[in-house]
Design a protein around this nucleic acid. Sequence first.
DNA 1: TTACACTATTCAAACGTTTCAAGTCCAGAA
DNA 2: TTCTGGACTTGAAACGTTTGAATAGTGTAA
Lengths: 385, 385
Amino acid sequence: MLKRSDRKSGHVTLSDVARACQLSVSTVSIVLSQAPLSLRLAQATRERIHATARRLGYHPDAYARSLRNRSTRTIGVLAYDMSDPFCVPVVRGIEQDLQLIDYFSLLVDAQTERKLFDSSLRMILERRAEGVIVIASWIFEEANLLADIKKNRVPIVIVGRDLTERRIPSFLVDNQAGGAMAINHLLALDHRHIAVIRGPDDLFDSQPRWAGIQQAATQAGVPLDPRLVVSLPNRVDPTSGFDGGLQLARQMISSAPGFTAVLAFDDLTALGVVRGLKEEGLRVPEDCSVIGFDDILPAAVCTPGLTTIRQPLHDMGSLATQHLLHLLQQPNREYPSALKPHMLAPELVVRSSSAPPHVKQRARSAPTPRNSPTRSARWATPTQR
Amino acid sequence: MLKRSDRKSGHVTLSDVARACQLSVSTVSIVLSQAPLSLRLAQATRERIHATARRLGYHPDAYARSLRNRSTRTIGVLAYDMSDPFCVPVVRGIEQDLQLIDYFSLLVDAQTERKLFDSSLRMILERRAEGVIVIASWIFEEANLLADIKKNRVPIVIVGRDLTERRIPSFLVDNQAGGAMAINHLLALDHRHIAVIRGPDDLFDSQPRWAGIQQAATQAGVPLDPRLVVSLPNRVDPTSGFDGGLQLARQMISSAPGFTAVLAFDDLTALGVVRGLKEEGLRVPEDCSVIGFDDILPAAVCTPGLTTIRQPLHDMGSLATQHLLHLLQQPNREYPSALKPHMLAPELVVRSSSAPPHVKQRARSAPTPRNSPTRSARWATPTQR
DNA sequence: TTACACTATTCAAACGTTTCAAGTCCAGAA
DNA sequence: TTCTGGACTTGAAACGTTTGAATAGTGTAA
């Protein structure tokens, strides 16, 4: 048995194994890395090496190996905030794809902090990721490290906003279509007095989503009442949408009552609205319908279940990954000149927070059909592809 | 300007910078790594090197650097499932502590898959993490890679369950105290017919939590009605607790009605129960109180807000990290013989899903006091330490 | 002139791998 | 005995860094 003091670092290395086997480092390496040459080695030797490696608890040093092989099999994933439920399924989509080809995802959480964003990108560069996926509905203007990424010829893609004007392949939901979908759902239920809570100015999604809403409303011949349109303040953290929705609901009830539905910018805002309405004694959906956007976990598990527009988050992650891997194949990596954003179709998920207006019901006995397929489809099978 | 074809790999290296500066690699290294020797260099040279490095977009190769320095400044974090809202604050607690001392957290998500657990641990070992933090309320018996971790003398700590009998420092909530807290809250509200949903057998938390509940009930002279005690089935994914709670609520209403409160194993189960009760026309909390455990995001943003027992998840992550860093300091790393688990105190968070029984109210006008400090304290300021 | 002390820079070895080219050994053929 | 060739094994260089020791150059004092 090898004495611990023989080793210089704490880890078991190839030469530890070699010494224990009385063989050279080369031989051991050839066997343990399954190199073609290992077929020429005596069966007995191979077995002896494997056994010794197992006994000592040898694991190859990924650093040394990557250095030598000049490949890290690593993709950097920069999430703007992992405590935003939005990020989680995207990351899952990415990781599941990478696993299949034995790539490793280096996940870094920028925690919605501007300066962490830069240092995270630096980490990713220093760890020699072969490509980068940025998840950022948040703004991150002039992150100058992006230039360094290009200088080092590391391909990059972005999920959650459109940065094609900077020549970065972008994967996002079709916000405009989603906005239209949301308002059309309410219109189809016969709502005519719809309050809309627009997103904050510093979020990319806000503008196109609002455009979709407005356009669909106009097209349907039911223009929106300007007194019923309000905006969320710029947010300080991913969950501040809840408080925003809560405040705005209180405000609107007193300043401009009479609406029968609220179209909220996202799910957390919608949940804040629900809380605000209930506080004022209004029932959802009997007295007022509420619709959100995103379809994060809380939307599925609250009661009444929140009707919402689902973003195909898992697919967004997966498609971005596929595209990045494709870019990695290109021998001569060129940043393309003209680029169209990849817009994924949103999906209306009808739960129990929306209903026709003015339906005077008593406590509904079964608002959700049992085993409704849309009840919590995504969350019931998080391993789906 | 350096021609791209001069470089062998895609990345800019020290020798690229050196060539561009007409200096040796050593000189450039000394300057860029702020080595003490750099003070002896001409000011002009230093500036020239820095400028060139910036121009070329040079970033040091963490792999080569770690290899040479024999230190990776990396802590492996193995989360059993990042889509469980339980993990997110723990990870945040870890990362914030590591950032302060410029350590990097290598986050790996085992996605509740047994075989991923092993391969994740292997990844962490191969990437030469200097320590490992495992987040696992889930069982992971005889993960034999744990032995390899010890052979390589990598310190390890665990969050979310007690593995002190295997000599692994453990950080978890005091489940027994938490269980007692939950039932005492309901008893204090005067509930005498309390249904209890126990956790699944394969979760570590289930047993001690149940022990705390039972003991407190007995102590209060209100023994539990065995017909009102049920168990969740073993879970397939982190969100299956919701469906479990939903099913069990339906079941109990028909088989053993008459309870005025439900104490659920965790928040998702509690939310499932709320859904089930509402479906049957029961109001929460007027007709039946519900209390959960964990205090994850959905508990705070649903309406009525869920009364629950908060686990100090952020602190659990933080304390585990501090302890691990402490272990790293020990020159001669010994796995201690006897170990006590670090039990963190849970905290009762009263929201609106619990109330005295049989209070026949109409739709309550303001169940939540505005700006109640406990309303969503954690989630309103996720950056708190 | 030689020795000395600076300053400014470079050499070379090492970290743990992988891999090609080159070794050693031994049996059997010439 | 020497040669051939196959079976098995190893030496050495390289990946991009860091760093202690060494070097070249330049002026100053003995």
